[in-house]
Design a protein around this nucleic acid. Structure first.
Lengths: 342, 342
DNA sequence: TAATCTCAGGAAAACGCTTCCCCACCCACC
DNA sequence: GGTGGGTGGGGAAGCGTTTTCCTGAGATTA
């Protein structure tokens, strides 16, 4: 780097001094506050600020105004397109409003979520978005719930984007309906034996989607199954499909609890030279970019909107207005080339 | 929410009062500072902190210690797995060290990058990572460079993960070598006519990769081309391949400037019932998860390491040690099923 | 016994900002 | 010639910390 002297950082006091005014006046100018300031004075302050390359300390400002302009989002894994899309929605809204977005990866662990939430409150985040789903029997659940309540007491807006065992408004979809409608669609195509590859054990999202599948099968008078274990990953989807292939009877269709699972299954079937969709149909859920590339049938979930709406709510309720209740976003079936009439 | 009274936020002063000690002593206990504190006193303070659910304000602390424990990363688009992987590397290292990661999407615009950098300095970020590549003829380039220099003066560690027209240490790969080696590999497989689908216009990464391709072709005495426009997206890769199909003569192989481009091209070829790799080989660069799923030949780039190393450097140099020079990370050819001997 | 140390603890400055409250005008109005 | 109201500006408190410097009280040494 050039040998430029390490200037510490221009402060408002320096600007004020250079302009020959008080700190109060300088502050008024740079924030253009309603308090009147003479044009000439204003110009002097602005010039001084310009010369010093002054930019206000967001930290100091946050401390006194009690508004940090920081929003935190706790995701399972930012590499997962599911969470990336949500984060993008949050960040877009935030940056347009001059807010900062802090991203925390929790690796789907409640314990880590607790840590992250603590840190976020230490930074006086104005809002915290829990992007991931919760666990059904969660031994740390109460601890998290208590922490969330405390955060709310401290004027931190907590929002969840999936089913959660704590008191907080949410923006979400009806996972059960998503799976049900997808299953109904496959049934309407004439499929009878429909396999299901589950999501991670104990996750509400997994349970809800499995439930929706079972609902639809039951309503159609069909026997649910085979149902295989999965964890939302390609590899597990692949492995489950391989197990499926070992069965005496091949299913008419395979549903993955998410796109990645379905794509893994799709790959396994194709490797085994099973014609998709002619012999077996395959479908997933979420409609990530992956699903589009693979041209796989799925159910579209407005992930970007999840994030955008959540962020807007937090920023809008920044005064102290309530952040609102629960919003249910619509999903949409997207038929593509991996499903066909039997 | 439960009608719990809105407690503002426990402060150190309250803890001190409850414990019957001064703020100074309370501070010493919660930070376990070297300054001696009697065991009994320590216990009282700890108990008070526990009772009040006290947690220190990171903002106030940052203000006085001049260490915000915030690292910013400016990415093109967090949804792009390329950037998501990098961000994950940063976040993992950060969170292990008690740092926060602020993510900013710049949409590959220098202008937005400038805004983000300003905001990040306002928040006293200890380091800023520029994840994306720079533009060759960039009219805002000087402005950004000046801002980066100012940031460095303010003890903010700036790091770039690609070629950039500003003064900052970097962690990167040799894009030219990446493309060259991939091209050489295809040539070694007996391909002569090798098409190339470029990255976005004006980006250093695009130019370097194109250059590497041309180097290899030239060195082998082959004529480069056809070369088609692209922008790192699936759609443009697809479109380019369609144009390729319209030519009188089909190439032996197609290289995409990144995986997504190559996968788009692959899809177009398969839709046209061109056998891959029997008739045409296809290869990309980066080795994202997408590439693995598509089983496409590519060159692996250690994205996660990019982020992790950058973050480690920033945190390590937190005192005031220099953040170091340039690190060149290794890449690795990953042959998969979309390339074959001609 | 006086001088010196060590251990514990407190007062207060500083970080950089916003904002409340006060003051001093100047002008208009009755 | 008072009173009132706008206009322009400053002083200082306060946000929640860390940290430097200082003060006592005992214990130790000469």
């Amino acid at each position: 780097m050039a040998g430029s002297p390490k200037r510490p950082r221009g402060s408002l006091a320096e600007v004020a001094e250079l302009a020959g005014v008080s700190i109060a006046t300088a502050s008024r100018v740079v924030n253009d506050s309603p308090h009147p300031v003479a044009e000439a004075t204003r110009a002097r302050v602005l010039a001084a600020a310009e010369e010093l390359g002054y930019s206000p300390s967001a930290l100091a400002r946050a401390l006194v105004t009690r508004r940090s302009r920081i929003i935190g989002v706790i995701v399972g894994d930012i590499v997962d397109p599911y969470f990336a899309e949500i984060t993008r929605g949050i960040e877009d809204v935030c940056s347009k409003a001059g807010y900062m977005t802090i991203v925390c990866n929790a690796d789907r662990s409640t314990e880590v979520e607790i840590e992250q939430l603590k840190l976020l409150t230490d930074y006086h985040a104005e809002g915290v978005v829990f992007a991931g789903s919760g666990y059904i029997e969660d031994d740390r659940g109460d601890e998290l719930a208590a922490l969330v309540e405390r955060a709310s007491d401290q004027e931190i807006k907590v929002l969840s984007l999936a089913r959660r065992d704590f008191e907080a408004p949410s923006v979400r979809i009806d996972n059960r309906a998503v799976a049900r409608e997808l299953t109904e669609y496959l049934i309407s195509l004439g499929h009878r034996r429909i396999a299901f590859i589950k999501g991670p054990e104990g996750l509400y999202a997994s349970a809800d989607r499995l439930g929706g599948y079972e609902d639809a099968m039951g309503a159609a008078g069909l026997e649910a199954g085979p149902v295989h274990e999965g964890d939302f990953t390609y590899d597990m989807g692949h492995a489950a499909a391989v197990r499926l292939l070992a069965d005496a009877e091949l299913p008419d269709a395979v549903i993955g609890a998410n796109d990645e699972t379905a794509i893994g299954a799709l790959a396994a079937l194709r490797q085994a030279e099973i014609a998709v969709p002619d012999r077996v149909s395959v479908a997933g859920m979420t409609d990530t970019r992956l699903a589009r590339f693979s041209d796989i049938t799925t159910v579209s979930i407005p992930l970007y909107q999840f994030g955008a709406i959540a962020a807007r709510r937090i920023i809008a309720g920044a005064g102290d207005a309530d952040v609102g209740g629960d919003t249910l976003l619509p999903h949409r079936l997207v038929p593509r080339s991996t499903t066909a009439r039997r």
